[in-house]
Simulated assay, not measured.
Amino acid sequence: MIQSSNIQTKSVGMKIFTDDQIWEIKQAAFDIIERVGFKCRHKQVHKMMKQAGAWVKEDNIKIPRHIVKECLVTTPTGWTIYDRNGRRAMEVEGEKSH
């Protein structure tokens, strides 16, 4: 059973991919978002994406990689998980790398 009142600062490091493999995965994701895009039927999202500089055609949205990279700069490196009583249970943290 997980005790939510305990805060532990232990961390486990594990590396599955090399830095080159991570770079390749990121480039592939950028290519897919930019060239293939994704389907979205929400008209407000279409409007928001167009205003941001994305290409919207019918329900398909393609986002240029420079916009995705700008968004990634603003993402947090971690977040807090709370228990059902609203008490902090766990901190999830990662490294900021772009």
Rank of each mutant, 00 (worst) to 15 (best):
I67Y: 07
I22M: 12
Q21W: 01
H46R: 03
R88C: 14
E93Y: 10
N60E: 03
G37M: 15
K47A: 14
K69H: 03
E95A: 13
D31R: 14
M1T: 12
V12L: 14
G13I: 06
M90C: 09
N6S: 10
P64W: 06
W23H: 03
A28S: 08
V73C: 15
E95S: 13
I63L: 13
A28H: 03
M48G: 06
M1Y: 06
T77D: 05
E24Y: 01
A28F: 04
S5W: 00
D83Q: 02
E93K: 09
S5L: 10
E34M: 03
K39M: 06
C71K: 15
R84Y: 02
W79P: 00
G37W: 10
I61A: 15
M49D: 15
N85F: 04
I7C: 11
K96M: 15
W79V: 00
L72M: 06
T77V: 15
K43C: 03
I16H: 13
G94C: 09
N85P: 00
T75L: 14
D83K: 00
G78I: 07
V68H: 04
D31M: 14
R41W: 09
E70P: 01
Q3Y: 04
K43H: 07
V92T: 06
T9M: 11
E58I: 02
W79Y: 11
R35N: 15
K39W: 02
E58L: 14
E70N: 13
A54N: 06
C71H: 05
I2F: 09
F38N: 02
V56Y: 11
K15W: 10
M48Y: 09
S5N: 09
C40H: 11
